[in-house]
Amino acid sequence: MGKPPTIADVASLAGVHKATASRALNPRTSDQVNAKTARRVLMAAKRLGYQPNALARSLRTNRSATLGVLIPDLTNPLFPLVVRGIEDTIGAHGYTALLANTDNDPLRTQTQFDALLSRKVDGFLIASAMRDDPLLTRVAEQGIPVVLINRTTDAPLFPAVTGDDEAGVATAVEHLVGLGHRHIAHLSGPATVSTGLVRAQAFHHAIAAHSLPEVVVECASYSESAGAAAASCLLEEHPETTAILAGNDMIALGVLQALSERGLDCPREISLIGFNDMLFVDKLTPPLTTVHVPHHRLGAEAAQLLLDQLAGADSTPKRVSLPLRLVVRGSTGSAC
């Protein structure tokens, strides 16, 4: 068996210097090479079956071309879309994502972060931030490149990409008020994370704008079981409720379970709105009205911010807020 082709072999076949061939084959430097020359190098590499040596490149550049990605719950259907957005963006620049699940557990988050750091990742994309997050405070002091996704810390430690939750909640409340609902409740996410707090605050402002009674029940987690438990409490204490805005779609699934157990029809007796527009919620019975969050774009925008940071762009923390929209389906109807 012959030796595998080297960069020198590619350069010789393409008729260029070895350094030119190396730049042409590196997505992060290919724009430094004339387009016609770069195509010739790529064709030569393909003809020879050349595969770049990632380890050798990382030793030369002191970069691993890998990024750590911390996800709070991989079983939640919205996060694969975030990861896909990340991979679609960083892959074009020669980077690979190393994924870790935290289960929203601070100790596991710390362990996973340190494990990725030991693998010499060049930076982190983190979707598991808590509002008061000791790990991220330490990471900021160490100057490690990080971009937050979907959630933020109270102190603006890092660049972040989120959805415009305030506008999303306001639109949802307007929809319910327009249907004649006057007893609208919010099952919020945990107040320890920014999405739970921001959406609850937005609900407060939206309800106050219509001079309606405010009812909020905080869920223990963003889960179906927590949603069912909170809905049961709500229906016991506030039987006059005719509409529910859930903190996310997982909570909304729990609400549907609680309504079914009580023989309550959705939307004839109680309307329901979720948040996120997860895959398959349009297949529920009834199909779920929900606030659509562009999760693929969240991942893509965050990845681009991190790439810009690694390229030496201004690292001042930036907050990017993406527009959301209400998707009206069968789980909302006129108030009785």
Results as ranks from 00 to 15, higher is better:
Tyr222Met: 14
Glu224Lys: 15
Ala226Tyr: 04
Ala226Asn: 03
Gly227Pro: 06
Ala229Cys: 00
Ala229Ile: 12
Cys233Met: 13
Cys233Leu: 15
Leu234Tyr: 09
Glu237Pro: 03
His238Ser: 14
His238Arg: 14
Thr241Arg: 09
Thr241His: 13
Thr242Lys: 12
Thr242Phe: 11
Ala243Ser: 11
Ile244Arg: 09
Leu245Thr: 09
Asn248Thr: 10
Asn248Leu: 13
Asn248His: 14
Asp249Gly: 12
Met250Cys: 09
Ile251Val: 15
Ile251Lys: 11
Ala252Tyr: 05
Leu253Ser: 12
Leu253Gly: 03
Leu253Arg: 13
Leu253Cys: 13
Gly254Ala: 02
Val255Pro: 03
Leu256Arg: 04
Leu256Asp: 05
Ala258His: 02
Ala258Trp: 01
Leu259Arg: 02
Leu259Ser: 01
Leu259Glu: 01
Glu261Lys: 03
Glu261Thr: 04
Arg262Met: 01
Gly263Ser: 04
Gly263Asn: 11
Leu264Ile: 13
Leu264Met: 12
Leu264Glu: 03
Leu264Tyr: 01
Asp265His: 07
Asp265Trp: 01
Pro267Leu: 10
Arg268Leu: 04
Ile270Leu: 10
Ile270Met: 10
Ile270Phe: 09
Leu272Gln: 05
Ile273Arg: 06
Ile273Asp: 08
Ile273Ser: 08
Gly274Leu: 09
Asn276Glu: 11
Met278Trp: 05
Met278His: 07
Met278Arg: 02
Met278Gly: 13
Leu279Ile: 11
